[in-house]
Write a protein that binds this DNA or RNA. Structure first.
Lengths: 228, 228
DNA sequence: TGCCGCCGGATTGCATACAAAGGCAGGCGT
DNA sequence: ACGCCTGCCTTTGTATGCAATCCGGCGGCA
């Protein structure tokens, strides 16, 4: 999941990927978020160490940091597994995400600079083109950039990081929905409401539009989960 | 900072304090939040290892986890220091905390069970008595319990954890205000508004009251910070 | 005199070795 | 036959030693 915004945005700070532990952390986080590592899968230290050609020490550090960020669960002397939150908890995460994203959108409506508003429009327009491209991966990347632009526009780094972290933690459970190509057009209409409200500086409107957007995303997850 | 709610609440899960790394993490986090370790202070691995009578390995793990939770900053090959966020960032944290706490209060107004409402009233009443006790430490503990009760009443563990984490990260920068004993009575009046709104199931009212309460807390921090 | 580069010390990052705790299977007793 | 206990084995937790990187001071040079 590579954000278009690059390596220096507020969401991760300077690129510290110089130590092996940090590289591993990034790699494992990516694998979890992308679904290459399924929830519930055990993370064997020796196995990972062999696979990445390092010793157990950096592997352990990576796992601990992932545990602190909520992507994996660890229990003393019992190893680590990719986090598998309960259905209730996932719903709670969607609820929290709706509020956080809406909050960012509301603040962005008030605080975005003209340049930031223009960037948002540009990304939004790029998404519109991508609806018909048949490239879900690319759409997903630009969609992330769209939301990241709003986080940045809120001008509150702490809030932005928290919202991004929540989005990351939810990501493993909403991968399927990008298969439903019909969703993209509807999603873009919802984005439209958000962008319009932000551009006109309408805090309440941006909040409401983004809230509805994320709630819809959550409902589609729920419908998908129920179909299993 | 020991919460009254005990060791099994949702805010930390089961008591895993069996490994040395975990004990150290808890100890250091406590020292940072309580101000025994000041922001900017360097955390020397060897020094800590000697002081706690362990090797560097668990010390390193503890520091990494604290870094992931935001209480310390680390840079590769350059050691770790207790986090010293910029003034702007602290204001952002207060803003986010206001929204999160208000959100919890609003959800609590809708969702609290009768038993939870009663507990909230009890804790609130205990705080009233403590205003005049002249024991700021005790007041602080019960105050934390008050807010924790509201988090729990929101019936969203993820949201509760996020809010609690934010409160924890802000804590080092609002210690001074408990010295101002005059603040306690005003704080209790604000709590009153929150409790009343929650008890009558008034989501918007609870949200607004809690939001105002936290904003006030933030403003008092700002006034204090400016006086330095 | 001031700046640049090199070198030594100190600290962190990583690897390896050892200790300890949990899980499982087999055997024993009831 | 079933359940419990015990001992081994696997995996994690901790200690220690070595390598790599950063910081400060020193000396050379313009």
């Amino acid at each position: 999941m590579t954000l278009l915004v690059g390596e220096h945005d507020v969401l991760r700070g300077p690129p510290q990927r110089k130590t092996r532990a940090e590289e591993l952390r990034a790699q494992l986080a990516d694998d979890i978020v992308r679904g290459a590592l399924a929830p519930g899968q055990t993370l064997d230290e020796m196995d990972l160490a062999r696979r990445f050609g390092v010793s157990r020490t950096p592997v352990r550090e990576a796992i601990r940091q992932l545990a602190a960020s909520g992507l994996v669960d660890t229990r003393p002397h019992r190893g680590a597994v990719v986090a598998r939150p309960s259905h209730e908890r996932i719903l709670g995460m969607f609820e929290a995400m709706a509020e956080l994203e809406a909050l960012c959108a509301g603040k962005a409506a008030e605080r975005m600079t003209p340049a930031e508003r223009q960037t948002l429009e540009t990304v939004h327009e790029e998404l519109r083109v991508l609806i018909h491209s048949g490239d879900p991966q690319r759409y997903h990347e630009v969609n992330e950039a769209f939301h990241a632009a709003i986080y940045a526009g809120a001008h509150n780094d702490y809030l932005a990081e928290m919202t991004f972290a929540t989005r990351t933690r939810v990501q493993p459970f909403r991968r399927a929905q990008f298969r439903l190509l019909g969703r993209l057009a509807k999603s873009h209409v919802e984005h439209d409401q958000v962008v319009e409200a932000i551009l006109r500086g309408d805090r309440a409107g941006a909040f409401a539009a983004m809230h509805a957007h994320i709630i819809t995303v959550g409902e589609e997850y729920e419908a998908y989960a129920k179909s299993l």
